[in-house]
C-alpha cells in the first residue's frame, strides 16, 4: 500500500536530474518503461543495461540506495504473486528445495520480477527528483485534460489534511482501547470511514464557497511553468535511449 507522507517523496538536491523540466522526465520514464516491458522473452543481458542506466541516474541525482530500497516495499504483494507462478505454471518441472516447479514458470517469474522492479525504481526516481506540483505541471504540458489536472491538484493539496483527520480519529479510537481484531469490529472502522467521507464532502463544498467568494466563475488558473528547451529533451532522452537500444538489439538477436 502506498503509505507514507507525500512531502517525504521529494528529495531536495540541486542536480541536473532535479532541474530537468518535469514533462521531459515524464516522457523519459514512460519511454524507458515501455522499452523494458517490450524486451523479448529469451533475452537476459538487456536487464543489466536497464539497471545500469537507472543506477547512473540515481548517482547523478544523488538519491541514496537505501531510500530507493525502502520505497520498493510497494512491490511486495506482487512479489508474492510472482513467486507463485513457478508452482502453478505448466510444462517440464524441476525440483527447487524439494518443491516441484515449472521451468517456464521460473523463467517467467524471473522476468516479471525484473520488469516490475525496473518500473518501480524508475517511478521512485521520478518522484524523488520532481516536486509534486511540478509533476502536475508536467502532465499539464503533456496535454492531460485540464479538469483532470485540477482534480489531481486538489487531491494533492488536501490529502495531507484528510490523512491528519483520519489519524486523529484513529488516536481517538485507540485511546478508548480499540484495535481492529475481528470482523465484528469493522463497524467501528466503517463509522470512521463514514465520518471521514462527510468531512471530505463538506470541505469540498466549503472550498467551493471560498473559491466563489474570490470571483471563481468556473475557470481555474493553469499552473505556470517554463517550457522545455531542446537541450532539456536531449538530456532527458539519454535514459530511454539506452533502454530502447538494448531492447531493439535483443529483438535483432532473436530475429537472426
Amino acid at each position: 500500500m502506498s503509505g507514507g507522507h507525500t512531502h517525504q517523496l521529494y528529495v531536495e538536491h540541486e542536480t541536473l536530474v532535479h532541474r530537468l523540466p518535469p514533462q521531459c522526465k515524464l516522457i523519459a520514464v514512460l519511454t524507458f518503461v515501455i522499452a523494458v516491458v517490450s524486451t523479448p522473452r529469451s533475452a537476459v543481458w538487456p536487464y543489466a543495461v536497464y539497471a545500469g542506466a537507472l543506477a547512473a541516474v540515481a548517482v547523478l541525482a544523488r538519491i541514496p540506495a537505501p531510500l530507493i530500497l525502502r520505497r520498493m516495499v510497494v512491490e511486495v504483494p506482487f512479489v508474492v504473486f510472482a513467486l507463485l507462478l513457478p508452482v502453478i505454471s505448466r510444462g517440464p518441472r524441476v525440483d527447487v528445495l524439494g518443491v516441484s516447479m515449472s521451468e517456464s514458470g521460473l523463467a517467467a517469474a524471473g522476468i516479471l520480477l525484473a520488469k516490475g522492479t525496473l518500473g518501480v525504481v524508475a517511478s521512485i526516481l521520478l518522484a524523488a527528483t520532481t516536486r509534486p506540483r511540478d509533476l502536475l505541471l508536467g502532465l499539464q504540458h503533456l496535454r492531460m485534460p485540464q479538469l483532470l489536472v485540477q482534480i489531481m491538484t486538489f487531491m494533492f493539496r488536501y490529502v495531507e489534511v484528510v490523512l491528519a483527520e483520519m489519524g486523529r480519529m484513529r488516536v481517538a479510537r485507540e485511546s478508548r482501547g480499540f484495535r481492529a481484531r475481528n470482523l465484528g469490529q469493522l463497524r467501528v472502522l466503517a463509522h470512521s470511514a463514514g465520518a471521514l467521507f462527510i468531512r471530505c464532502f463538506e470541505r469540498g463544498e466549503r472550498v467551493h464557497l471560498a473559491m466563489l467568494s474570490r470571483g471563481y466563475s468556473g475557470r481555474l488558473p493553469t499552473l505556470d511553468g517554463a517550457q522545455a528547451r531542446s537541450t532539456d529533451w536531449a538530456v532527458a532522452a539519454c535514459l530511454p535511449a539506452a533502454a530502447v537500444l538494448a531492447s531493439a538489439a535483443a529483438w535483432f538477436a532473436v530475429g537472426r
Binding site: 502506498s2 482534480i151 487531491m155 493539496r157 481492529a180 471530505c200 472550498v207
Partner: peptide, 24 residues
C-alpha cells in the same frame, strides 16, 4: 458543474485515505 474540481479532488483524497484502513 463548477464544483467538479474541488469536490472530486476531496473525494479522491478520501478514497486514498480510506484505502489505508486495513481490516482483518
Amino acid at each position: 458543474d463548477d464544483k467538479t474540481a474541488p469536490l472530486a479532488g476531496l473525494v479522491a483524497a478520501f478514497i486514498f485515505a480510506v484505502q489505508m484502513l486495513n481490516f482483518p
